[in-house]
Structures are given as structure tokens and as C-alpha cells.
Simulated scan of single mutants.
Amino acid sequence: MTRDSCTLCGLPTPEPPVTGGDDVDGAFCCRGCMEVARTLEDPAAMDAAGAADSLDTGADTTDVDGEAAFLSVSGMHCATCEAFVEAQATDTEGVRAASASYPTETLKVTYDPETVDREAVRAAVDGLGYSATERDGDAAADDDESEVGRLLVGGFFGMMTMLWYVLFLYPAYLDVPSAAQLLDLGGLAGSYLLANVWLMATVVLAYTGYPLFRGAYVSLRAGHPNMDLLVGIAAGAAYVFSTATILTGGREVYFDVAIVVVLAVTVGDYYEGRVKRAAAGRLADLTEERVDDATRRRADGATETVAIEELQAGDEVVVGTGERIPVDGVV
């Protein structure tokens, strides 16, 4: 993780950072912050919330009528990205409202299907550092591949580390007689072993655990500590203590604790992400299948077709065979 911070939102910047050249001064964590900074006189004097408020993101999706679409948008890193993506969407003719969420990488768009089609809505958001696809499209698969890759790398090096613990380190910690131990930790071979354990633990924490530590940093900067911070403290403390122990000539290290914590939480986050994406996909399907009209029975016994917004409490709605029930009610 780099020590440099985004000029606009304060989050860590990648290496190399996103810059705007001569058009805008500063280094940014993402394209969204950089593009928003172009619209500000002094980006360094503006925080993420103020920058987001400076954008015209349109109406709330609950306040307008129209066709709803759910897009998967990768590349969002912060609240500024949310506002920027929403502004990009609502700048498109026919798009009435948009609501983005960077934790779930989801954009909900309400649009007029007679003015603009779904592909045009997706194209309006796609680009400038973001990749927009249908919610069940390639983005979810790419996310899965990235997370699985982190788990595979972490799992491999984690198993190698635990194997060395079981064969060499645990017997020494449990005071197994020296004659029964496979390796003397006090010699040069022991130092070589610990150096390799440190290296493999570093790979697990730096690569597999990077999203956890980044989440911990973001929560701390936002003033809302979360579970990532707790996990980061636990794993980081075990890693730092063990590293210091090796450097001072000690032999009792706890890299196994750091690795187990990171892998356990990463596996949990992976399955949680899959559940969230599945739920978002079902929500999108449900929204697409929602009906806009209902058949209401009048007092004279005749029926009429009305918009569901016109239904009142106590109205009798007629639902034919194979039709969807348009509103909640008593059957």
C-alpha cells in the first residue's frame, strides 16, 4: 500500500497514481476523483462529500417513474466515484435517475425506454476508468476470478507455512526432545527456515490480505471503524511482533496466526460477495418482471386497467390465471 493519499478524497493512491497532467494538479486514487477535481477550483481544499455535492446527480431513483436497470460497475473506489458515475448516467438523455454503490459495485438506473435503450445507458457509464456490464455479465465473473486468484495464492503459501510449522516449529515450541526434532532452530538452518516463513507470510498478508488492510484504512479515515480494522489489527500485530522477534534473534513467531486470520476472513468475504451478487441479480430480475398496471374492479362490477400508483387501500384487484400479482394484499 502506498503512503501517498488522493488529493481529493484522501484514500491511498495506486502506483503510479492517477493524474490529470496539466489540466489539474494533484494525484488521485481513481479516475472519478480526477475527473471531479477538474470541476473544482481547489481540489485540495475540498473533501469527498463536498466534491460529491458539487456534481449534479439528478433525482432519487425512488422519486421517478420509468424502467429500472441494474448494472455492475467495476472501478469505483470511493464516494466520489459513486457521485461521478451517477452524474455520468443522468447526463444521458432519457435517464431520469441513478444510484450507485461502490461497496457492491452496483448502479441502479431509472430511464425512459422510449428515449434511450439499456445499451446506451451502459455505454454512458462505461469508460473513464470504469467498466459497466449487465449485472449478470462479465464483471461478476472477473470479480470472482480476482478473488479466487487471491485465495489460491494465499492458500498455497499458507499451507506451505503451516506445513513447516507442523514439521519444525511446533515440536520446538512444545518442548519435544531435541533428538526427536527434525531441525535445530538455533542454528543457521533455523534462521533460513524462519526467513522463508516470514517471506511466505508476507506474500499472504500483502497480496491476499490487501483488500482487508485497505478496507481497514478506509474505515479509519472515514471515522467508522469496521470489522476489517479489527482483522487488520489482529493479523498485523502478529506479523509485526513475529518480524521483530526474528530481527532480535528470537525463535517463537506467530506468522501462523496472521495467516489463519487473513485466510479465514478472506474466504468469508468471498462467499459473502457471492451471496450479495446473487441477491442483486435476483433483485434485478424481480424489478424487470414487475408489472406496472393492475385490473381494478369498480363498484358496478366492471373492471378497469389502472396504473398501480392509482390503487387505493380497499380496492379489489382482479388477477387472472398466469398473471403476476401487482401489489400486496389479501387473497
Rank of each mutant, 00 (worst) to 15 (best):
G158F: 06
E288R: 06
D142M: 12
G155S: 10
T208D: 04
G32H: 03
A87K: 12
A83H: 04
R38F: 13
S131F: 10
D23Y: 12
A189V: 11
V265R: 00
P12G: 06
E114A: 15
L182G: 09
L174N: 07
T80Y: 06
G329I: 13
V306F: 05
K108W: 15
Y210A: 09
S54H: 08
V85E: 09
G58F: 14
A264I: 05
T243G: 14
P14N: 08
T287K: 02
E114P: 06
D126Q: 01
A235H: 01
Q88R: 15
D126R: 03
F213T: 00
Y170E: 13
S54L: 12
T57Q: 10
L163R: 12
V203I: 14
T39P: 00
A140P: 00
T202G: 08
V265W: 00
L194W: 05
R282D: 07
R31H: 15
R296Y: 00
V319A: 05
V261K: 01
A68V: 11
T39A: 05
I308A: 10
P12E: 04
A37D: 02
L71P: 00
I325K: 14
R277K: 10
A27Q: 11
E119C: 02
G187V: 07
S5P: 00
D112Q: 08
A299S: 11
G129M: 13
A195E: 05
A124G: 12
A52W: 02
P225C: 06
D23G: 05
G32V: 07
E304M: 07
L194R: 04
T19M: 15
Y254P: 00
P17M: 02
I308V: 15
F241I: 14
M160S: 08
P113G: 07
V197N: 01
A234F: 03
D269S: 10
M162V: 15
L247Y: 14
A235K: 01
A280T: 05
E288L: 04
E310L: 12
A313V: 15
L229V: 08
V166H: 11
G94N: 08
H77C: 12
R150C: 05
E304L: 06
F168G: 03
V109Q: 03
Y102I: 03
V18E: 01
V275N: 04
V148E: 13
L247T: 14
A284G: 07
D53S: 14
E15R: 12
Y130D: 07
L193T: 01
V148W: 15
G281D: 06
L205V: 11
D25M: 10
P177F: 03
G154I: 01
D143M: 13
V231W: 01
A44M: 08
L193P: 02
G281Q: 05
A68W: 10
T266C: 07
D47S: 08
A180D: 14
P17H: 06
G21I: 13
E288P: 00
D126M: 03
K108S: 10
N226C: 08
G137K: 04
R118T: 05
G223E: 05
R122K: 13
C9L: 10
T266H: 08
G127S: 11
W198F: 12
I246K: 08
L107S: 03
N196E: 11
R135V: 15
L163D: 14
